[in-house]
């Protein structure tokens, strides 16, 4: 059985949940193996974390020579790990950067690429992916027919399953071409931690739109009572009420939580593209004709400024 490489999604060595989800999917296809591109001294810590989800080999690539540059060196590093491992497939988190790494890797290795998979299964040892397209109106199953399947996977695509892996660290030294160093990161300002769950990984998301009129407190307080992440429509982002990292939709993030609550959001097609696959959808909107109500499992026609605080109270009381 060949190895299935999973590029570890992490922040300075702290492994993120999508990594475990991808390892779980990898186990369906072959032997899960992890590739950690990051500070070398975090290698053993990462190996400890990923072996609990079945990672056999953990390839550690020190990022000292890579980190000042955008995308290209990581694709080169991954290609060199692929040469060592001859994997059956490569799984990468579907972030903006993940997709770009995957795109370059596909060209480098002459391999087919599938992006934004929400599920990966094995059919006679070939990886079959499920994607959600056209603003979630269609489901597509696809497979790679050439080279090594390179698949980018969305968060929440699988429930992480613990499994014992060897977690054997193998350090790989890579060479980075000059061509890959053409885009230099001159400055970087990490985003402030919100203390809330990560938007794309959260089980519950509460979002506000233009209907908040700029006061997001009702949205945030409900989110905190439910342990949810906070999102926003583009209208709310364009008005400067929330940074772009909160935006849900075609040109923002795609979320697929257990519960999505939209407050003061009309439900434009571009917004739907980012939330339509949520398991349960709830809306609060004062206009009963708002298109968002076509999607909901439960809707309240009313003013969010009175409804949300009252719901928050109810939630707190019932939780107490």
């Amino acid at each position: 059985m060949s190895e299935i490489l999973v590029l570890v999604d992490h922040a300075e060595g702290a492994v993120k949940k999508p990594t475990y989800e991808m390892l779980t999917l990898a186990a369906r296809l072959g032997e899960p193996a992890a590739v950690f591109i990051g500070p070398k001294d975090k290698g053993s810590e990462v190996a400890e974390a990923v072996k609990r989800y079945g990672a056999g080999t953990v390839y550690v690539v020190d990022d000292e020579a890579l980190k000042g540059y955008l995308v290209a060196p990581k694709a080169e590093a991954l290609q060199q790990v692929m040469e060592k491992s001859s994997p059956g497939a490569v799984l990468i988190a579907s972030s903006a950067e993940g997709k770009e790494i995957a795109g370059r890797l596909a060209i480098k290795t002459g391999s087919g690429l599938i992006t934004d998979a929400v599920d990966v299964e094995s059919d006679h040892d070939t990886a079959v992916t499920t994607q959600s397209v056209f603003a979630g109106n269609y489901t597509v199953k696809a497979k790679v027919t050439r080279g090594t399947p390179i698949i980018t996977v969305k968060p929440n695509s699988a429930a992480p399953q613990e499994a014992d892996g060897a977690g054997t660290v193998e350090e790989v030294s890579v060479t980075v071409s000059d061509a890959a160093k053409g885009a230099q990161i001159v400055a970087s300002q990490p985003r402030k931690a919100t203390g809330r769950p990560e938007l794309t990984e959260a089980a519950i998301v509460v979002s506000g739109g233009r209907g908040t009129g700029g006061s997001f407190e009702p949205v945030e307080e409900l989110a905190d009572a439910l342990g949810a992440a906070v999102g926003a429509s583009r209208a709310a982002v364009d008005s400067g009420w929330k940074p772009h990292s909160y935006q849900i939709g075609q040109t923002g993030k795609t979320v697929s939580p257990q519960l999505y609550i939209a407050a003061g959001i009309s439900g434009a097609i571009q917004h739907r593209a980012g939330m339509q696959t949520s398991k349960t959808i709830v809306a609060v909107n004062k206009d009963e004709e708002a298109p968002i109500f076509e999607l909901v499992d439960f809707g309240v026609v009313g003013d969010l400024h009175t409804v949300l605080p009252a719901v928050t109270e109810e939630v707190k009381q019932r939780k107490a």
Partner: peptide, 25 residues
């Protein structure tokens, strides 16, 4: 193409949910 689409399925329309009007809480 280096990838092949095996199957496309239109998403079943969501079942109509329950919608209530807020009246005094």
């Amino acid at each position: 193409a280096w990838t092949e689409v095996a199957e496309t399925t239109a998403r079943p329309p969501r079942e109509a949910g329950e919608i209530v009007k807020d009246e005094e809480g």
